[in-house]
Design a protein around this nucleic acid. Structure first.
Ligand code: FES
Ligand code: FES
Lengths: 133, 133
DNA sequence: GCTATTTAGGTACTTAAATTCCTAAATAAG
DNA sequence: CTTATTTAGGAATTTAAGTACCTAAATAGC
């Protein structure tokens, strides 16, 4: 079994968690609650949100009644942004595999797959947190 | 750094190797030569071609002057076929991540990403070995 | 101030996938 | 028939992702 689009478990957690937080605005949500709601690993979620915090997508408050909340309006947060924070920067080069040189004259995937990579990129950039139901 | 389309190194080796073999038909090519030509790991390539052989995409001959050759016309081999042999069967379900249940009412990726997964699938199925330059 | 709660961050463990290593089996050539 | 070559297949290793654990720092509430 194989997924065609490359999205890690961590990025999925980030998105699902942020959607939950967005829906529950303006309440602050802590990872314990979030993990229960998402039915996910609390520690993994904590690590993921640590990254989101560092990137200033969310702000965190420690201590009792602490937790996470969005640091900007949900409609200003795209899935592209979330994705790149967690899975790393996307580089749209000449080869959809990110290779620099092909043993053949030029990347044999040319055209078709690059078109799709571009499509995914643009789609990611259009998906706003506010739109996830 | 992250690739948007999920294609393993193994699947890439399979494709590049098969393209090389297709171009050099009707000669038989052995993995040593192939690894040099592709500038790739010989052992990995060997494993990959073992799978391709088992799936009858190529036929193999052991011993001196042995090697691999296509088992059917290049125009009858699609990248989809190659991909699934190496990376596993593609399942186009309701969620592009292959999850069964979303904690939200329905998969929050609905529509857009599934459209793209479908697009990738169809594109893979149209890419014939004979067309790779 | 003290205590309980909660995030931050480092380290360590676990698991699965990718890759390599090693020996056996096939076969062509002499 | 013997030898060199080459694929087959299993075992072992490496790597990366995910997960857990532990201590420190912040802070709210009393
Ligand atoms: S470099 Fe893109 S496929 Fe060979
Ligand atoms: S199930 Fe597809 S995103 Fe939650």
């Amino acid at each position: 079994m194989s997924n065609l689009i490359n999205i890690s478990e961590a990025a999925s957690l980030a998105l699902h968690g942020l959607v939950f937080i967005a829906k529950n605005q303006p309440s602050r949500i802590n990872v314990k609650v979030l993990a229960e709601e998402l039915n996910a690993s609390q520690t993994h979620l904590a690590k993921v949100f640590q990254k989101l915090g560092k990137a200033n997508l969310v702000r965190s408050l420690r201590g009792p009644a602490g937790g996470f909340e969005l640091n900007k309006p949900a409609e200003d947060i795209t899935f592209l942004e979330i994705y790149e924070i967690i899975d790393g920067e996307i580089i749209l080069g000449d080869c959809p595999l990110g290779k620099n040189h092909c043993v053949f004259k030029s990347c044999i995937f040319d055209n078709e797959l690059n078109r799709i990579s571009q499509d995914i990129y643009e789609t990611f950039s259009k998906m706003k947190l506010s739109e996830f139901s």
